[in-house]
């Protein structure tokens, strides 16, 4: 990644142009050509740095319910339980963390009842009762932009 890549990434995290020729507009801002912007983005995607370019939706405003869940998984069952949990399309993120509650995943479902039903099914299918549902009660901050120029 060179400094132009970093500027481009910082720019398009939140200010991707919603105009007919967005890549040309980015090129003008960065002082390069449309072709250069497109080929850089292609490369950043192939390298896995960019996961996707598009809309990141507010699940609540779409009428969905989202929550964070934590489950205590015995060390030797991690792969198997991860596979089961990840197989639900509403599970969007899943991380192992250093704690008794060692598997942390986010679940998005059409309603809180639907989420609870899925969690109950996970408890039944894994045989693990220690699975807690931690929906946000209050939001104090959501920020997903990182200034790559500082890296």
């Amino acid at each position: 990644m060179d400094s132009l890549d970093k500027q481009l990434l910082t720019l398009i995290q939140s200010n991707f142009p919603i105009t007919p020729e967005p890549f040309k507009e980015l090129a003008l801002t960065l002082g390069t050509t449309e072709e250069d912007v497109i080929s850089r983005l292609q490369k950043l995607k192939e390298e896995g740095i960019i996961r996707r370019i598009g809309g990141i939706f507010d699940s609540q405003k779409l009428g969905y319910f989202s929550t964070l869940c934590a489950i205590k998984v015995p060390e030797e069952r991690i792969d198997e339980v991860a596979e089961l949990i990840n197989s639900y399309p509403g599970v969007t993120h899943n991380y192992l963390r250093q704690h008794e509650y060692n598997m942390w995943f986010t679940l998005i479902a059409p309603s809180s009842q639907a989420a609870e039903d899925i969690l109950e099914e996970m408890r039944r299918r894994t045989g693990i009762k220690d699975l807690i549902n931690l929906p946000a009660i209050n939001f104090f901050k959501i920020k997903v932009n990182f200034n790559l120029n500082e890296v």
């Binding site: 990434l9 939140s14 991707f16 740095i49 960019i50 996707r52 779409l62």
Partner: peptide
């Protein structure tokens, strides 16, 4: 409804 329009990074 769209919280952010742009690139999702790893």
């Amino acid at each position: 409804i769209i919280r952010r329009f742009g690139a999702a990074l790893r």
